[in-house]
Write a protein that binds this DNA or RNA. Structure first.
Lengths: 201, 201
DNA sequence: ATATAAAATGAACTTTGTTCAATTTGACGT
DNA sequence: ACGTCAAATTGAACAAAGTTCATTTTATAT
């Protein structure tokens, strides 16, 4: 059996791609060290040399996926009209579409806390997401209370996405679900203004 | 080794209790067939005679947990003032508290789709939850569009809970997070009314 | 060419979920 | 009382998973 020596920088992406396609096809439970090893054409030991544990592979895969999410959100933001509501709506839809386009990858991202990018990585991702939200909200949101509201708004959008995910939404239902994601943003903005004018916020 | 013969009706709850305490202590990954068997004082084979698969045990455990959730929500609803907003706020808080009181059980409920009560059971649970929401909303919500809005509102509340969960919220942060759950309801209701008066809903 | 370090290997160990033939139990008919 | 028999229980055994590590191979520098 040949033992070609490949530099890690070119081997790691291959491993992550193999892991990803396993997840896409059969969900997280379809991933196995031996399966990936066979797909990449490498032994199990090599995987452990590269990533330490199997969780490390999933984690690294999730880091890549989060980067993709950020790209999608930035694209949506840049394409949207220069108005707070339109921008937030565009981001919510992009978030929704991203999740629903690859449900198994989304599940891998959020449903397995062991496997969620740890510590610094996830905090950095949240910080980036939040800076995008502030850019989207623009002058709509200023100050500390508004930041909290923005975070809460996004949690609400995430909830709608989760609901759509848990129902494995497809077809016409998907359009309805995406509209619900819009609804949350529209109602959230109006509610925010109402609460401010009532002096509650 | 003695082979006492216990009727299933008294053995099953013992198994579920063992599974539950494993989950509470160490999360879903701490559950194992052999572990439960030892705790209950029974062989692995017996577990499989009773539940078919290990997933069946978790599923049954989740069914019990969902019943507990419904009890908690009904209690909150009954204790609240007879006014739509107060009732929805009470339900949101009860939902939040229920999730955060046992994070590992919550995770078992929602984060593992394989293990989520299947088909009829989860639909029945959703139907019950929704009927509670309609009771809470009362005259606030009438007709089909309002039903959808109510469902969306709850998805948003769920999102806030998920965010609090993912941060393993404790202490003072928990009060803030619970307040965010209230915020979603308050803003949601006001936003709903605004959208109606704008003719969007 | 040789030495040396880095990389890759795959056999082996542990721990899972799961199965099933054999064994034990308790109730019922005689 | 006794024997029968279906139901319940057992635990050894299998497959597949994550993980480790002594050994072997490769590439590079001297």
């Amino acid at each position: 059996m040949p033992k070609k020596r490949r530099p890690h920088d070119e081997l790691k992406p291959a491993v992550l791609a193999a892991a990803r396609s396993s997840v896409v096809e059969g969900g997280i439970s379809a991933v196995s060290a031996r399966g990936i090893a066979e797909d990449v054409g490498v032994s199990v030991g090599t995987l452990y040399n590269l990533f330490g544990h199997l969780d490390g592979i999933i984690r690294a895969m999730n880091v890549v996926r989060i980067a993709e999410l950020q790209v999608a959100l930035v694209a949506a933001l840049d394409a949207a009209d220069d108005e707070p509501e339109a921008r937030l709506l565009a981001m919510a839809e992009a978030y929704f579409d991203f999740a629903l386009s690859e449900p198994n990858l989304w599940e891998a991202l959020f449903r397995y806390s062991t496997v969620t990018p740890s510590g610094g990585e996830i905090e950095a991702a949240e910080a980036t997401l939040f800076s995008l939200l502030r850019r989207a909200a623009g002058d709509e949101a200023e100050g500390g209370a508004a930041d909290e509201s923005l975070r809460t708004l996004w949690a609400a959008v995430h909830g709608v996405v989760e609901l759509a995910m848990s129902r494995r939404t497809v077809g016409a239902d998907m359009d309805t679900a995406r509209y619900h994601a819009r609804l949350v943003v529209m109602a959230g903005l109006r509610g925010y203004h109402a609460l401010r004018s009532e002096g509650i916020l």
